[in-house]
């Protein structure tokens, strides 16, 4: 289980980021240990997605340092591609490769980024698809699947790279309510197996069941950082109290 002694998987030091005039990340410091599940919540526009996306450098930063697996994130190029392969990412809008079958979506990374041979990659892909419950959809195109199935395929695609860390940016926000649970179940089981995860989500049930730590972000800062029970029952700041009151009304 994650603890202060577990090795560090990712670390952000004094990270700052602007979009033009807008200061979206303000001196972010964050250490993520192996096996840890960190849930990030906060109001819209607070910088949650941006934080998530800086960790695999989909968003470059202005200043500060980000380490993944002990290595400083390199500049754009081959080395960065290699490091990105170590970080799985699951998007709100799934982003499955629209012109490729589900099976090809899952095998693409292992085959092209890791040069794994086709047969071995497909064998493992089918196991992963089975694990997320959609092995029977392997030969379909993404558009032929429901949202929940697409998101599970996207999780399988990320897992196929054996990532050290998985990033989830609101993985259930684009889903119809009846499909949210099938995706959360997969995520809970991943967490239970010790996958290191950073999850931007407003699913408090998931946070309570699976998270070790909740980060509350507002205006580009991490305002609170606490185990889920503590955070949900005793938020410290007014911003957090306000925010929780609003989302609990639903």
């Amino acid at each position: 289980m994650a603890s202060e002694e577990s090795p560090v998987v990712a670390e952000l030091r004094h990270v700052d980021k602007h979009f033009g005039q807008l200061h979206v990340l303000k001196d972010i410091n964050l250490t993520i240990h192996k096996g840890e599940v960190v849930v990030v919540i906060g109001p819209s526009g607070s910088g949650k997605s941006t934080l998530c996306r800086t960790i695999n450098r989909l968003e470059p930063i202005d200043s500060g340092e980000i380490y993944v697996g002990g290595k400083l994130l390199p500049q754009e190029g081959k080395a960065l591609a290699k490091l990105r392969a170590e970080v799985g990412m699951v998007f709100q809008s799934f982003n499955l490769f629209a012109h490729k079958t589900i099976l090809d979506n899952v095998t693409l990374g292992p085959r092209k980024a890791r040069k794994q041979d086709k047969a071995a990659a497909e064998k493992e892909a089918l196991e992963l698809l089975d694990r997320v419950g959609i092995a029977n959809q392997a030969s379909k195109l993404p558009a032929q699947l429901s949202g929940g199935q697409q998101q599970r395929a996207a999780i399988a695609r990320a897992l196929a790279m054996h990532p050290q860390l998985m990033l989830f940016d609101e993985p259930t926000s684009a889903l119809d309510p009846e499909m949210i649970n099938e995706v959360l179940e997969v995520m809970v089981s991943l967490a239970a197996e010790g996958m290191t995860m950073v999850v931007v989500t407003h699913e408090m049930g998931f946070a309570r069941r699976a998270a070790h730590r909740v980060l509350f972000m507002a205006d580009g800062q991490i305002l609170e950082e606490a185990p889920p029970e503590d955070f949900f029952t005793h938020p410290q700041t007014d911003r957090a109290k306000d925010f929780l009151a609003k989302i609990l009304q639903h």
Binding site: N56, L58, E76, G77, K78, A81, K82, R84, A85, E86, V87, G88, M89, F91, S93, N95, L96, F97, A98, H99, L108, G109, K112, A113, R114, A154, R157, A158, M161
Partner: peptide, 24 residues
């Protein structure tokens, strides 16, 4: 999102272009 997913999975720019972006 297609290009972002390609990069996130560890493809280089040329691989993303050749395998994901240009075919579409």
């Amino acid at each position: 999102g297609q290009a972002e997913a390609a990069r996130a999975v560890g493809l280089t720019f040329l691989q993303s272009a050749r395998i994901v972006i240009l075919p579409q």
